[in-house]
Design a protein around this nucleic acid. Structure first.
Lengths: 193, 193, 193, 193
DNA sequence: CGGTAAGCGAGACGGTACGTCGCGTCTTAAG
DNA sequence: CTTAAGACGCGACGTACCGTCTCGCTTACCG
């Protein structure tokens, strides 16, 4: 008895509107950034009444979090055969997200708001951090198998340290070397290799 | 004699107004936070016309950066005789900044905006990070002298890693242990001690 | 059936707001006069957002012209049986308008602005001048019937002359006699009676 | 001995500044009109500090009245040998004042403010009306001498009626004939010629 | 199959804050 | 003691969005 799809009375919410709202939100986020992005502009861009947005979301945060979450985004789990190859892929994948304007805005937004807004922190965690942490754990496990790493390491803490330095490097970009080189140097130090 | 202090024509800007604006800005920042803080309210609180603020700053960022910069803040360079004692003092000093509301807001603000605004990044760097980096370097040097540390380490990079994990821990607070314990564990790992 | 009353989409404009705006405008006009009357004050007095006013009117002139026009004002067409009786009523009716503060302000405003603003001139013409001109024409016609007047006169031009002297007398009030006496003297001269 | 030119202590007021202020005031009056003309703009245009203006005048009215009064303006008293010739000259002289922008603004200003501001009424009276009234009186007197006019007329009242119709014609311009023709027709009627 | 109930676009509503302009006063140093 | 310059506290400007509220009009389902 699938009572799950119990239909409510009245006209159902339009999925077209959902899509249009998500799209408009992401476009505007990329173009003007979170702060300068007005609900009014989103509604106009999506060709939708403001009511239709406010019926779905009570706060701008919710709206944007949902829009970000709706983005299809694959995090590939690489296995190129050696540790540094895997790590480079992970770093690159994490970094290239900041290359298009939307990615930059999303990162900036997460940094800005994650600490205040569980909303965003959650989305960011499950959507971006979690998959990469898993990929990282797998890479480390494989490296141990290959005996590239012999010592016991706290993979989670190492991952956090690397995430931390990457975050820090975005906020205060290194001046004497490239971002990539800087991060690689940090990883070396942490992994003692 | 250089004519540096060449006086401009016209009535000079009021230093009283400067002070009042700084004070009102910091108070409101602590009370309602950066986003909800209106220029109008600052002017009212400071007993000053809006013009007087707009004459000095073209953007809210500038105003707040300047107000933060104007705060007298001593970063003591501790020397308690052993490495962990020194490190604990540094961590604590960095952490306790987030204890009063103003400190919390300032940190949140820096995290929020530093990546977008060179303005804030610069202030944060010279006012908060730089002194602590120096203190850290001294502590490491003393530890070497005492032979608590024998290996050669890249103190700057280590400092960045620690700063990074502290930042990361603010954005995604650890769930299974205290912030302090989390940071100590990370430092241990990085310093291999 | 013509589709004249084709209803626009969206929420219709509030007639309550219309009324409140008119009333507040007239009150403030009477209290402080046109120049010192701020849109902000009107909005506050009417319990209405500034936007609601700016949505309806692009200029203060328009707003005030509309408010004045909305005033119900009867111009009685007198017939007391002889010419001078009729004329006195017309003069009095025109004059007494300046007795309450609102009337004074409206007259002052029309005098001030009519030459610059077709807006006001039009309102004043159709609302105040036209009815009186008609009343005057009727009075003259009746006087001819009664043979109080024998010569042929250009009633419109005479009316303009009288209006002119009344205007002139408001701008440069006579010093040696009353306004009413001054106007009567002028009418005598023009009508050669 | 002539203590008239008793010199005050301190620096005397600059007559250059006086002239510059007058000139700037008249220029701006012509360009943007009385209402939109700001003291700040006058000071800037005149190359003068605001203080210098406020020291001389306490109100905008005073300033403008003084500037207008300072204008050199000749009202010629014509005598061309017959009444209508004289009258035409007077009408023309009065009318052509409204041809350049400054003239238009001055007339509009006088109409606007004369009834409220004795200041302006006085200036307008002595500077513009009085001379023309005298010219008119002379013309009438000469016409009597020439026996162009035989009846006794109240020249002052007639002048006021003509002034009135000219004012009225400026506020509500005649639509079926020229201003000049309209005024001539009115004069005919009043003078019964 | 016709009624009922929610969703929809549009856009007006009372507000708050924006950044600008001008007011009339004041404070400088220079003359 | 005046001057040019220009900062000051203040009040209003006209605009942009906020989140809420009507409108007339679809949609769907349910009895």
């Amino acid at each position: 008895m699938s009572a799950k799809t119990k239909s409510q009375p009245g006209r159902p919410r339009s999925v077209e509107a959902d899509r249009a709202i998500h799209q408009a939100t992401l476009n505007l986020l990329a173009e003007v950034g979170y702060d300068r992005m007005s609900i009014e502009a989103i509604a106009a861009r999506a060709g939708v009444g403001k009511t239709t947005i406010y019926r779905r979301y009570t706060a701008k945060e919710e709206l944007v979090a949902d829009a970000i979450e709706s983005r299809r985004e694959e995090v590939e789990v690489p296995d190129v055969g050696n540790l540094w190859g895997d790590l480079d892929l992970i770093i690159t994948s994490a970094t290239q997200m900041t290359l298009d304007p939307l990615g930059r805005q999303i990162v900036a937004l997460i940094i800005s708001t994650a600490s205040n807004s569980p909303q965003f922190a959650q989305v960011y965690w499950t959507k971006y951090l979690q998959p990469r942490r898993q990929a990282f754990n797998s890479a480390i496990a494989r490296a141990k198998t290959r005996q590239e790493i012999t010592t016991d390491i706290d993979a989670d803490l190492v991952f956090d340290l690397i995430s931390g330095i990457m975050l820090y490097g975005l906020v205060f970009p290194p001046t004497t070397e490239s971002y990539q080189a800087y991060v690689r140097r940090a990883i070396s130090l942490v992994l003692k290799i």
